[in-house]
Design a protein around this nucleic acid. Structure first.
Lengths: 119, 119
DNA sequence: TGCTTATATGCTTGATTAGTTATATAAGAA
DNA sequence: TTCTTATATAACTAATCAAGCATATAAGCA
């Protein structure tokens, strides 16, 4: 019996890696914060409650994946979301999770702030 | 200064976990295969080229996440996709990756088989 | 009762990774 | 120059995880 030609391993790995980058709570929180506005590392540290080193490292991961962009201004480094499609991804996941858990997770519904226009 | 109220840690972890389940090439391949049709474990083993134990273990992970469903028939266990929204997720990711890598990854465009209608 | 086949599950190993601490880099101020 | 501040990075630890091998479970057949 013939099975459909499998996707290239390389392609599968690329897709998987993108999902893995999104598979960490702190990175999601940083993206959530950056969904509202461009922020400096220090502001992200304060807002997230995580350590400076940890925030910086996760920002590098997001940067390498090209999910965020960086802008230097004097001593400060400002980050912003480079790929708004992540919010569509999160909305899809949130929607499914809400169904799965019968809705008592309303906070889940909006990873991005509702008052910020999408795309 | 006031920052937007962070999402509940629990919510972020739930969302992250869902992404993490999708963050493995073999699991994506299994979902890809199951996107075409319900399949037994043995068929998945043959089609994927992975070991029986490994396929079985990854299927349990997908099952726990409720991304697939299981049906027993005699000695066989048939799996099928329980949550078609994963294909929307993959399409979104594939679309972005194609842009990012300037399109020479056309195979990436369709994680689900094009001839299967999408939900 | 065995015997066989399909699937699931322990156990172990090696690789990856999130987090901490300490330090390095880089840029402005004195 | 030296001092300070913001950010990045290196080294380390602990936890997680994929994969291999072996074995257990479960269902049909002799």
């Amino acid at each position: 019996m013939e099975y459909p030609k499998p996707l290239e391993n390389k392609s599968l790995s690329l897709i998987a890696e993108r999902f893995r980058v999104l598979g960490d709570p702190l990175r999601l929180q940083l993206l959530h914060l950056l969904g509202a506005e461009e922020m400096s590392v220090g502001a992200l540290v304060e807002a997230s409650g995580a350590s400076q080193a940890n925030v910086s490292k996760h920002l590098q991961i997001l940067l390498r994946a090209e999910l965020v962009q960086r802008r230097k201004e004097g001593l400060l480094a400002f980050y912003r979301v480079a790929d708004p499609s992540i919010f569509q991804l999160c909305d899809l996941v949130c929607g499914r999770l809400s169904e799965q858990f019968r809705a008592d997770l309303t906070a889940i519904g909006m990873l991005r702030h509702p008052d910020v226009p999408r795309e």
